[in-house]
Design a protein around this nucleic acid. Structure first.
Lengths: 333, 333
DNA sequence: CTGAAAGCGCTAACAA
DNA sequence: TTGTTAGCGCTTTCAG
């Protein structure tokens, strides 16, 4: 006797047809006050909950989207992943969509038929899935990876622009001997940030010295090594642009340990505005903030548009970064 | 002409009935080889994907569970949240369940009718939702919060036991003057860890001095303040048990800055095994690891059992912690 | 081993 | 404004 109650039961209890019940459930206005009230009451009394599967089947749309995230092993991506999650979570909430989450290493698949579209957060390891989705014409957007090679909408961060802002800030502060510690150059992000560095130097007609570009991997240790080399130079840089906050913190630590005042004698610029990293810095890190949250929201909205307008999205969106001034950069004296 | 193809199309293409197609789709063995092959081929050729809503409607079960997570503003919870997410993600994958994620501040609700059960990761701010769910007899388990007051299954961490392990380790190392820096005592977690500290002291017949218990809030700054006070004591402690790694790192930093050797002159024990925090420590932090991942998995399995066995779960599970020895604790010399 | 057919619970014409 | 009814795509007896 614990049969789940359905629309028919409600109809009976309220003395109307199931169509009317359906109407009030879906908020269609064409229902007389009295009836609506009775139905509402019946729903409450019976604790009626519409069966979503039936709704979706009948309405031929399921109001759910999928989010697939690579299974990061690297814990330092957690800040990133969480921002994404929050952003998408916020957006689906507003759009009254269900969110199916799929965390994967690329070997498992999202239950595609349970969603109307999918967002890929990054694409590493999931190329195959993206292909699948694309082939079956399922609405799709890729986040944090912008490629012209795929006929998909992408929304990412303008890393070049961010790097330009960073380096230009240093230049505006009077610095000319500016070094950089790059990220893992296998990633688009790292390349873009280095590009921004080079571009800005050129634009300001500052000679770029090979000795000032150190190859890191976004991690602190690589920055420590690089910085040690940098400060040992006959003419050491007066400023360092690190491609991640983690590396910026590493650089600052090396400086401090070597009695070099930051920012007095050495300015250090980070990237990410990653609270995890900068929280542990002896000096508040001046950095570039990426609109991660916004990226997630834009991605969700883009997907929604693709779904509702039945278009085949192929926009490439890049969101601008913001300079966050704190205390690790100062004018050259 | 882009009508989605359904089971009928496949049946026609394979020259069998839809019932047979359904059987092969569901892996029922009662299908002749030849037919199965033809159906499989048709499915592939037509790119057939069963409609999940229809499946669920017909089968009367939807194979999806919900996970509701509080919208943390505190970024230092990111490690925690991500571990949970990964654990649950892994588990649902194995059980072939869909995962509906709902990140909330307590004002928005999970689409309950889209799932068969829900897991609450923590309960802060979501008490009302838990009540709702419970009232409607929906399968439910609460994670990381164990309460006897609610008729729900809970799976949490044995924080008391973890603290006992931590302090006992210090005692085994010969320490007698052991201080503690507590977490935010509003939380169950913090209270339990302090309880473990006190209990262990008593068990070892070590007098506990009020001056050795400092009230922190899990954050680094509170630990810095506390440690400064501690080292200024006439007889300072030879060991500190911090209720979080963040605080342990703070303590270590203060010690180092004051020329106190860790662990030579001062042993520091953390809690959490939080890579975010300990990655920035000058000394590798000896700490207590919580089985976060496992907790998530157990929670998911528990929920699954409640759903399939149609029982009304009310188990209270506490998972044990593990001592991770690194280099911030040493024998008293 | 297979097919026919009766639903699953709901939405959306269509008619009234 | 409301009710009737035909599906939505699939699972699952029940016969055969």
């Amino acid at each position: 006797m614990d049969k789940t109650i359905n629309i028919k039961d409600v109809a009976k209890a309220a003395g109307v047809s199931i169509a009317t019940v359906s109407r009030v459930v879906n908020g269609l206005v064409t229902v007389k006050r009295g009836n609506k009230a009775r139905v509402d009451e019946a729903i409450k009394k019976l604790k009626f909950r519409p069966n979503v599967s039936a709704q979706r089947l009948a309405a031929k749309q399921n109001n759910a989207i999928g989010l697939v995230i690579p299974r990061y092993t690297d814990i330092f991506h957690s800040f990133y992943a969480l921002q994404i999650l929050q952003g998408v979570g916020l957006a689906v909430e507003k759009m009254r969509l269900d969110l199916l989450l799929h965390i994967t290493n690329g070997n498992t698949f999202l239950n595609i038929s349970a969603v109307e579209g999918v967002i890929f957060s990054d694409i590493i390891g999931n190329e195959e899935q993206v292909d699948n989705i694309l082939q079956m014409d399922m609405p799709c957007v890729i986040m944090n990876y912008v490629t012209k090679d795929l006929p998909v909408s992408c929304v990412g961060i303008d890393n070049i622009g961010g790097a330009v802002k960073a380096v230009q800030h240093l230049i505006d502060l009077g610095h000319r001997n500016i070094a950089t510690i790059t990220g893992e150059l296998k990633s688009q992000v790292a390349i873009d940030r280095m590009d921004g560095y080079i571009k800005t130097l050129e634009k300001n007609k500052i000679e770029k010295k090979g000795i000032f570009v150190k190859y890191g991997d976004f991690g602190r240790d690589s920055a420590i090594k690089a910085t040690k080399e940098l400060i040992r130079l006959k003419t050491p840089p007066t400023a360092i642009f690190a491609a991640s906050d983690e590396m910026a913190v590493g650089a600052i630590q090396v400086a401090v340990e070597n009695g070099i005042n930051v920012p007095g004698e050495l300015s250090v610029m980070g990237f990410d505005d990653n609270p995890l990293a900068i929280g542990f810095s002896p000096v508040a890190v001046t950095t570039i903030r990426q609109p991660l949250h916004q990226m997630a929201i834009v991605a969700t909205e883009t997907l929604r548009d693709i779904i509702t307008k039945k278009i085949r999205g192929n926009k490439k969106i890049k969101l601008p970064c913001e300079l966050i001034e704190r205390s690790s950069c100062a004018p050259l004296t």
